[in-house]
Amino acid sequence: VETYTASVVGGTGFTGGELLRLLAGHPNFEVVQATSRSADNMTVGRSHPNLRDLDLRFSDPDDLESVDVLFSATPHGVSMGRVDDYFEVADTVVDLSADFRLPEAAMYDEWYDGHESPEYLERAEYALPELNRENLPGADLIAGGGCNATATILGLKPLVDAGVLGPDSGEVVVDVKVGSSEGGAGGGAASSHPERSGVVRPYAPTGHRHEAEIEAYLGLSVSFTVHAVDMVRGASATCHVFPDEPVSKADLWKGYRGAYADEPFMRVVSGGGGVYRYPEPKSVAGTNHGEVGFELDPGNRRVVVFSAIDNMTKGSAGQAVHATNVALGLPETAGLEFGGLHPVGSP
């Protein structure tokens, strides 16, 4: 069995913890290092109770060990400054922040605070395999997609591929609901439990960063709004689109099944029976699955598209491992087979 050594930079955050969980359970990986400034020398299990069996202590991010694959789960702005160090110790670097996610440096000037090593942008490959699979084999710098953009791209890509939506389509409104892990583990009054339970709180009334990413990879300009709701994990994107030509349910089924029938992680869930009739974060919590579905609203010449993922897996750590499996030529679903729980509490 081919095995690769891996390290996780920024191991105490939620995303870092998910990477450690997936890599520790992956048949082809061995986790040799997890770094943290704040928890240096503490056991990984102290930060992540589900990893108490992992015999590993956090180490200092300035003493990076050489590994085959280095995963960086640091906030925006860190890996763009350390990417040279990373490549000194690793053959493949997988970054889960936004630092290599957008294709052009100018976009970082507009939506972030510029870019410290724009020369790497050309070399970086967008991680989402459902969109970029053919460019991943052999890639040595992989950039994880943003979770809101991932949910939206997975929902709308079949309509773009089928020509139902294009750059000059009418308004594309994307109204997203996300859990509290998306704000990361950061503190502050707004994310305290008393203030956060039971919210429906506009979190990004207008979402330019997400819009820039979606436009770069789908060629669609969208109007984005994000709300925090009472979940920890999960992102649900509801896309309201108004195709120029009328479209039928049969066309929609053909488009979505055509796009995803062979995708190992995608499910088309649309108007069936039972309790879970449309895509829902609960149905995919903890898994690398994506659920997409749609409803036709002829009266308003509208198609409503629903897309649900777990922002911690399909929206970040799972997507990173999936892309790395493709880059290294490993089985795509290796280490990503967990199918979720039912019944399950708030994801």
Binding site: W253, V268, V269, G271, G273, G274
Partner: peptide, 11 residues
């Protein structure tokens, strides 16, 4: 009889 379609899940 009502059955769910193996293709679309629709009843």
């Amino acid at each position: 009889e009502i059955i769910d379609s193996p293709v679309t899940g629709t009843e």
